Amino acid sequence: MTSAVAFGVPAEAFVLVIYKERRSVGTSTSVTRHSILAFRTPDGREYRIDEQNGLRRAVGDRVGVRYLPERPDRAVTVDHGTLEDTICVAVGALLILGGLVGVIITLGHLPPRPPIVIPQWRH
């Protein structure tokens, strides 16, 4: 897989179908997003891959893929999702950073605590 990313032939794939797969184990349920991608090799053959990385895609989206010439059926995507995914991650990171800055500022402005006086016992 990493050799396809590093040394593979680049191609442009299109999202043909999107579906979700639900799996239940006991009381927990997980949902995996799938995208069926199609691309053509220079000799005109069409290949389809089932992408299961959970990225949000829409039918018709263009997706960069790379494949080894001897195994085009094992193509891998080389993009990292849509602009929407990037914006969500950036906003989340900014919110976390803002919260940390707020905590640090609040801790820096707290009044000093008075010393703790421990009464001494006299016999």
Rank of each mutant, 00 (worst) to 15 (best):
Y47F: 15
L83V: 14
E84L: 11
L83M: 11
R45G: 03
N53H: 11
H80Y: 15
A75P: 03
G64V: 00
E51I: 01
G81K: 12
G64M: 10
D50C: 07
R62G: 03
Y47L: 13
T82Y: 06
G64N: 12
P72E: 09
V78E: 09
T82I: 09
E46G: 05
Y67Q: 04
G81Q: 04
Y47M: 08
R48Q: 15
G54M: 06
E84Y: 12
D73H: 12
G64P: 03
G60N: 10
R48W: 06
R62Y: 01
R66V: 07
R66A: 13
A75D: 03
V59T: 13
T86D: 06
D61G: 04
T77V: 14
Q52G: 11
T86A: 08
E51A: 04
V63H: 02
V63Q: 02
A58R: 15
A58T: 12
A58H: 09
G64D: 10
R45F: 02
A75S: 09
E51L: 12
P72R: 01
R62W: 06
L55M: 13
V59K: 01
R62D: 00
L55Q: 14
V63K: 01
R66Q: 15
V76A: 14
P69V: 12
R45H: 10
L68G: 04
D73G: 13
G81C: 08
T77P: 06
P69F: 12
R48T: 09
N53F: 04
L68T: 01
T77D: 05
E84Q: 08
G64T: 03
D79I: 06
R45L: 13
R57I: 06
H80A: 10
V76G: 12
D50Q: 13
L68R: 07
A75M: 09
R56P: 00
G60K: 01
T86E: 13
E46T: 11
Y67L: 15
L68P: 00
G60S: 05
E70D: 15
P69D: 13
L55Y: 14
D61W: 04
T86S: 06
I87P: 05
R62H: 06
L68V: 14
R66W: 08
L68H: 14
T77H: 01
V63S: 00
R62E: 08
V78R: 04
D73W: 09
R56I: 02
L55S: 05
Y67A: 11
V65E: 06
D73I: 04
Y47P: 01
Q52R: 14
D85P: 00
G54K: 09
R71M: 15
N53S: 14
L55F: 08
V78F: 02
V76D: 08
V59W: 01
P69I: 12
T86K: 15
A75R: 01
P69Y: 12
E51W: 10
R66P: 08
D85I: 00
V76H: 08
R66F: 13
T86F: 10
E46C: 10
A58V: 14
G54F: 01
E46P: 02
E70H: 12
R57S: 03
V63R: 02
R62A: 10
G54Y: 09
G54N: 14
P72I: 11
G60T: 06
T82M: 13
V65T: 04
G64Q: 12
T86R: 08
